[in-house]
Amino acid sequence: MMDVLIETRGLTRNYGEICALKPLDLRVNNGEWLSIMGHSGSGKSTLLNLLGGLDRPSDGFIRVGGEDLRVLSEDGMARYRREFVGIIFQQHHLIPYLTAVENIMMAQYFHSVPDEAEARTALERVGLGHRLKNRPGELSGGEQQRVCIARAIINSPRLLLGDEPTGNLDHGSTRVVMELLSELRAEEQFTIIMVTHNHEVAAWGDRTIYLDDGVMVREELKGD
């Protein structure tokens, strides 16, 4: 039996009177690649934010890697995010006045100690060894996303979250990014949870769940 990394029971998130995520029971195994699909407003990003410690549930139980996220303080949540989670954003969210390598080092700084050699190696792993000193504005969308991936994995997270990481990329760049994530996962053995609209992207996962209006309506295993 595989060990469970993530477990939620009755996980709920309300924004005022709007229920963005209705009571959800979910288990994700260690090392699994889970894709989450659904149309806009279905609760995909809300679930991802709760799993990443970026938001707090209104109700229900959520445990990730043995941490009960409901009881963590603000600084405890920050520690959880820097030590346990890596996040790949659709909009990349790179600091525009820092170079690629400096963007990676910033994540190192908040985690422990900046190490430029290690940051360079991370960028080389995502194929950007020749773009170390370029600022985000000088990089293509695909390159920026690879910097974002390097930043997400630099502190060796156990859980990698992707919020539509290929949403702004063309087909070629999407394939490059997905192959890269697949290779990294094979090397690092981290768990991936990825929100996407794209069935091709979702198909890279071991399992796909479908959300609709805050409710999990369907679940597919790879090959189904």
Partner: peptide, 16 residues
């Protein structure tokens, strides 16, 4: 705000 939010998202605590 986005920059500060990013710092928080990648693990910066209040002191940092």
């Amino acid at each position: 705000s986005p920059e500060i939010a990013l710092m928080k998202a990648i693990g910066a605590d209040s002191l940092q």
